[in-house]
């Protein structure tokens, strides 16, 4: 099929260099451009105890909360330290009004009875920041 006579014809030919380069890019480019599906930048999974206790792990999304609160509200007033899983949150503390319970008390936000809204992750997902490029790259990154 690749003899020079064919190449001269007007219809596109797979042996034509320009055309095959074009074809190559048309097929390969999407692979580079398409970003793989990942959770939102800054989503935090908290799973120190949940899996063990038979609950789905907890997802805390920064994007949703930072529309409503400055960082200081949580990281100064409520007192979350900046480390995924580092606060060792338990339901006792939440019900007492600490951590998530400072707001999820039926006053500032809906209350603690909505178990599944917080406990929403795929079972077995490990504690950590998700959705950042950190989890895509080598090592810890």
């Amino acid at each position: 099929m690749c003899d020079p006579v064919v190449v001269k014809k007007r219809l596109p030919n797979p042996c034509n260099k320009v055309f095959s380069v074009f074809l190559f890019f048309a097929l390969v480019l999407p692979v580079f451009i398409a970003s793989p599906a990942y959770s939102e930048h800054g989503d935090i999974i908290i799973n120190n105890y949940s899996d063990r206790e038979g609950m789905r792990p907890v997802i805390f999304s920064h994007w949703f909360h930072r529309i409503r609160f400055r960082c200081r509200v949580c990281h100064t007033e409520v007192g979350f330290i900046m480390e995924a899983g580092g606060n060792k949150i338990t339901m006792d503390k939440i019900i007492k009004g600490e951590y998530c319970g400072a707001c999820h008390n039926g006053d500032i936000a809906w209350g603690v009875q909505n178990c599944d809204v917080c406990h929403s992750a795929i079972r077995g997902t490990k504690t950590g920041v998700r959705g950042s490029h950190r989890t895509k790259g080598p090592g810890k990154w």
Partner: peptide, 19 residues
């Protein structure tokens, strides 16, 4: 990315319709 496809939210969980 929709929550049900973000690889952390359980697509079968009840929260997916609420969040």
């Amino acid at each position: 990315v929709p929550l049900a496809k973000d690889k952390i939210h359980d697509p079968e969980g009840p929260a997916i319709k609420i969040l």
